[in-house]
Write a protein that binds this DNA or RNA. Structure first.
Lengths: 319, 319
DNA sequence: AAGGAGTGTGTAATCGATTGACTAGCCCCT
DNA sequence: AGGGGCTAGTCAATCGATTACACACTCCTT
């Protein structure tokens, strides 16, 4: 910057003013400075700038699992929305692991992100409290924590799950197996609760198996449930659904004749599976965008409302 | 930091030394400082530190499309490897768009990442030159550019494509349609060239359609190729493959009876599709890890070799 | 002609760390 | 007692920007 100033015969203050679009500098100096800038190929040091201004124009996004296309889509939407407002997004991958999540959150805070978007790995509120106590704008995405003290953006699947339950019961299923998410995540619990409520006494405890939102756990759960004579399987997450489908295929069971299947989260390939899979589709893009918008509002000092979107049932041939 | 120093009754220099594990401070002062640190809940400002040390312990990764699970997997692997070496990864999503790619690269450079991993959207070398000229360690991943002047990590699919070609010819196909990647990407060109070489005169020009590595382009290309009486379709990317499969299903064509299908890039769900899809599987995790390792070597002043891995053919029922 | 208003620039403090140069204190030796 | 050799710690410059304040100048007003 000093070089630029020298080159243009002005002080660094003037260069800075030109760079930041202040009113002060004359048209003449302005062009002189700009000429110097691209003659020297100067690029401002964002670290120094941020250090001084205490603003990084960066948002942090800590998601549970980058390999889960649901989160990849969300990340993509967040990034889009943020970029359109001049913000950058740093993505952290927690791998469904509370410890790694905490590490990432702290790293991002150390780097002074202007705000943080978090899909919490568990519903333990301590990390959230830590961030909020540190005064950093925080918005929770997809999942919440106990007694959350910050805005939350999520999609409600209760209606869709109720419809699904009705449909399965209507088709004569009496032994419906559930591959639920972890009991210590809000989505894991809520989806199960909503489905259980819709099913009432028809749902027997031994047909509920908790997975970890990953493919393998879906396979294992499916094996267990089939063993217990379930005639329908509902996987509460697309990766566990994938695992369940793989297991059914491995076991030589036919869908939906032997076992009906439905999965939470739609994916582009679900219609192509044999048979096409009934799903509950979440508005991922809207969730991501809304979360980014809420966070930016918070960063700008507003107090955004929680956002509640809805998932919807998409019936295909698998049940 | 000043507060901590005061609290512990030492100077900021000493605090810094404790923080950075210098030999100097006594065990006594050390514990005093550490006590002060967590009493005050002090966290060092990474911006200031980086400004001073000119090292951010951060790598930049600019990928072509975060929604493409191939790149998501790579990102995940890069992140894993980097983290295990104490580095953070900032992911930028170029959306297969050269301009957005350049913007992201510059943003990352401005933030002084210690090194950059790039999956170039086109084979135009100007951006690469710009980075190299700036003296920032750069490694290309998956794709290369014309006259690349930096290490490259990629997977070679020529053998697998040759096997695939042989197999299709052996099955009696004479009109084999290719859904190729963009001609201005190295992977787009190389995969097509390798396949064309293996097929020889059997490949007619009107059965080669270029897509853009996205689902929709795969559908459109498939429609065109079917129209031209192709009896086999090879999609050079998983998303275009997905699009092609969707189009075939929409058109009511049966795989492999009416049209045989093979796709470049394996995905966990390809075995579940009706019928299971023959693919060319790339060692994504190894690519990501190798790229991160190469970049870290470069950052540490070594001169890593290019890394060439191999893709392999996985035959399933679709052809 | 003096004083005031309004502009355009420059000077220097500042953000929060790191680190080279220096100093104070201690021990030991002659 | 004085000096050499260590150590543990302090001082202050530095990284590269931003910005409050001061200054110089022009142009008006009275």
């Amino acid at each position: 910057m000093r070089d630029v100033a020298q080159h243009a015969g002005v002080s660094t203050a003037t260069v800075s003013r030109v760079l930041n679009g202040h009113a002060a500098p004359t048209q003449a100096t302005r062009t002189r400075v700009l000429a110097a800038i691209d003659e020297l190929g100067y690029r401002p040091n964002a670290l120094a700038r941020s250090l001084r201004t205490t603003s990084t124009k960066t948002l942090g996004l800590v998601i549970s699992d980058l390999l889960n296309p649901f989160f990849a889509e969300i990340a993509r939407a967040v990034e889009d929305e943020a970029r359109s407002h001049g913000y950058c997004v740093v993505i952290g991958n927690a791998d469904e692991n509370a410890e790694q999540e905490a590490t990432y959150v702290r790293t991002l805070l150390d780097r002074r992100v202007d705000g943080l978007l978090l899909c919490p790995a568990t519903d333990d509120p301590s990390l959230v409290r830590e961030v909020v106590a540190g005064g950093v704008p925080l918005v929770l995405l997809d999942r919440t924590v106990r007694g959350a003290t910050c805005p939350v953006v999520r999609a409600d699947g209760a209606d869709a799950l109720t419809q699904l339950a009705r449909r399965l019961v209507g088709a004569g299923h009496t032994r419906i197996g559930v591959i639920a998410g972890p009991a210590d995540t809000s989505t894991g619990r809520e989806r199960l609760d909503a489905f259980a409520a819709a099913l009432g006494p028809l749902l027997s405890q031994d047909l509920v198996v908790h997975g970890d939102f990953r493919q393998d756990s879906g396979s294992q759960a499916a094996a267990v449930l089939v063993e217990r004579n379930a005639t329908a399987l509902v996987a509460m997450d697309n990766l566990m659904g994938l695992g369940a489908l793989a297991e059914l295929r491995r076991a030589g069971l036919r869908v939906p004749d032997d076992v009906a299947v439905a999965v939470y989260d739609d994916q582009p390939w679900f219609p192509l599976v044999d048979p096409p899979v009934t799903v509950i589709a979440q508005p991922t893009v809207e969730m991501g965008r809304a979360a980014a918008r809420s966070l930016l509002a918070l960063v700008n000092g507003d107090q955004p409302e929680d956002v509640h979107l809805s998932a919807r049932l998409v019936v295909r041939a698998s049940c």
